[in-house]
Design a protein around this nucleic acid. Structure first.
Lengths: 109, 109
DNA sequence: AGGCCCATTAATTATATTGTTATTTATCAA
DNA sequence: TTGATAAATAACAATATAATTAATGGGCCT
């Protein structure tokens, strides 16, 4: 149910990629991101909403702030998707059977 | 110069994800894709243009047809990007040093 | 309660995306 | 050269995205 196309859409904006890269260093609040990227605060909030909707980040409440952090599961899902294509550039020393099964399943759907 | 955000944008459309999945089975022409996805030929052509612009596919000329195939380098680039985040969900048995170096480089830019 | 700070929501604008139909270009084959 | 087929381009409509400013909501102080 994770709708990977939403994840890709969320990552298709350079600002959001930047936010994600920044969050890789650890949690941070909206205003911290506002001062890092030269955009207004509502713009940053909108980007965070997209990232959250795609499952790339999660948010909590701490006093007045709403710190966000990366959601590992989203990245794991990306890796699983990419796995299908790994044989394109790597020797096929990984699970080629799984790749073929996936493709078969796609054709049935 | 590979502009990963373009790659993500290209993959953010379900039709284009479908095209990519289909191309994983091998080369195919525009019309083959038209009959697989229920969209008009110009629409498919437009999608292919986006995928080509993002470097995800390459195209050749064979008689009247323009077969397309996946470009492994694009997927490799995705994997390299994802590498930074792998420590989020895996034990950090991979190149943690490289991850930290990357983050440092980002902050300088 | 009143003020301050962090963040969201509303309204608006400009631009990009995705699809359509109609037309054009290009290659093959007779 | 003519006709057929493959694909690209043009013109256009509908919707989505990303940014802004202005207004609102909510938690923390004294």
């Amino acid at each position: 149910m994770s709708e990977l196309s939403h994840t890709f859409a969320a990552l298709s904006d350079p600002t959001r990629m930047g936010i994600v890269a920044h969050l890789a260093t650890g949690e941070c609040t909206v205003n911290e991101l506002v001062s890092k990227f030269e955009l207004t605060q509502p713009t940053i909030s909108a980007h965070l909403k997209v990232l959250e909707g795609a499952g790339l980040i999660s948010r909590t409440r701490r006093a007045q702030t709403r710190p966000c952090k990366l959601r590992p599961e989203a990245f794991k899902d990306l890796d699983i998707w990419l796995e299908r294509y790994r044989t394109l550039w790597e020797g096929n020393y990984r699970r080629l059977d799984a790749v073929l099964d996936d493709l078969k399943a796609d054709q049935d759907s």
